[in-house]
Design a protein around this nucleic acid. Structure first.
Lengths: 241, 241
DNA sequence: CAATTGTATATTGTATACAATATACAATAC
DNA sequence: GTATTGTATATTGTATACAATATACAATTG
């Protein structure tokens, strides 16, 4: 949705991107890595001084984040970091499961050897990272996202991979927490290798099964986590005002 | 994505909705019913005088429409009504096909008798409308959209029905033209009845097949139409400046 | 004392002014 | 004559000012 211009020379024009996009990225990152908690109010004045920008690009950023589902902009009442219930999580993973398996099955027919190798390489990298004992979860999460996105893109349907990207970003903010388990990552790596193998063999039934299980298992972990969370920290009123 | 507040009394607070949303609706309608053609530039000044509003809510409306895919807002270059190629159409219907059959299969397990009756009623209404000889295509299109949306919603996954809504709205602007064929609508009505029957019987395989065919056929018609269009009216430069 | 209403304050909605960039076209150099 | 560069104009990006609305809390009434 957001435009990204690339040029022949590998020059970084990032800071020339519209201010609204840079602001949106900052807020999005803050939400994803937990610096901004679900439910907290985002008043324009606060963010204005926080980022040192004026309200116009700030408001545009908030509206963008609303359309992405990270915040809810309520007319005349301001913006709030969106909250995700365990029902939401089930819907998100349910939809992602359907779209990812569809994309993967499409990819079976069109994927190149290069892309398959890239998928393998990403999985190998995850393995070395987890065994590094440094527990670099941010890198692991990025590698994991890259794997799934590369696979989705390989399906060739841009709408589908865009939806998947959107769905994944919704739960990303929780992955920092619930993925911090070596066992879960080991499982993930195992699943990834099986998925690659199923694509190699163009075994679509097996592929669908693997991807659905991969999602269902992630969904279960996250739902458990959220339920725990809501038990230990009840109602949790606005904590930023 | 856009908020809609409803209240216990059936009072219409439409004009109290944020100006940006009302502007966005106007532009969206204009794009859907063809008053604004794909490729035409939307300069802020022009729209400003056209709607008699200032730039801020106007810009916010354009960004919203960008996120919905109706316009492309290019940084520092302005907004353009998005163009849809026949490749785009194939991706849109491909994605919609997958999501609609998934939603319909989910609906099989949860749909109520009332909803099934509503689906039937909508189909009956389409039939009386087409036989009215008045060729009220706008009504037909609305009934058709309502049918598919009601069915998607019956699946119970809000993310999925939101994606479907988005995909349908993308092609809506062409439906005014290519749906203007009695034969296509007759086919549609026939398909709808079969779909309802498959849900009644909870025959998921048949259901999936019907919905995929329904989409594939619509996709073919629209692609043919677009290819014809691009042959008869070649490159077609910016026609609004 | 509870419920309601009025008022001040906080906050968002909208309009406008100024700054930065892109586009088109003319002038110049080759 | 073509290509390049410079400049004016159009257009968008950002900042700020003003208007409208919501919220919280005090005052008033029953």
């Amino acid at each position: 949705m957001t435009k990204k211009q690339s040029n022949s020379l590998n020059v970084d024009f990032t800071n020339l991107a519209p201010l609204r996009d840079r602001i949106a990225s900052s807020i999005r990152s803050a939400i994803i890595d937990g610096r901004l908690q679900p439910g907290s109010r985002l008043t324009e004045q606060e963010l204005e001084t926080m980022f040192g920008v004026s309200r116009t690009p700030l408001r545009e950023a908030l509206l963008l984040l609303d359309s992405e589902g990270f915040v809810n902009v309520l007319p005349r009442r301001g913006a709030v970091v969106s909250e995700i219930s365990s029902e939401d999580v089930q819907e998100i993973y349910g939809a992602k499961s359907i779209l990812e398996s569809a994309a993967a099955k499409l990819a079976c027919d069109t994927i190149t050897a290069e892309t398959l190798d890239e998928l393998s390489a990403l999985t190998d990298e995850m393995e070395t990272t987890i065994n590094d004992e440094r527990n670099d979860y941010r890198t692991l999460l990025n590698l994991n996202s890259e794997f799934h996105q590369l696979l989705s893109d390989a399906g060739g349907n841009k709408k589908i991979s865009q939806f998947i990207r959107n769905l994944r970003s919704q739960t990303l903010r929780y992955n920092y927490i619930y993925l911090s388990l070596k066992s879960r990552i080991d499982n993930s790596i195992f699943d990834h290798r099986n998925i690659i193998e199923a694509i190699r063999q163009k075994n679509k039934e097996q592929l669908e099964h693997l991807i659905q299980e991969h999602n269902a298992s992630a969904c279960r972990s996250l739902c458990d986590f959220i339920r725990q969370q809501s038990l230990s920290q009840p109602p949790q009123e606005l904590n930023m005002e």
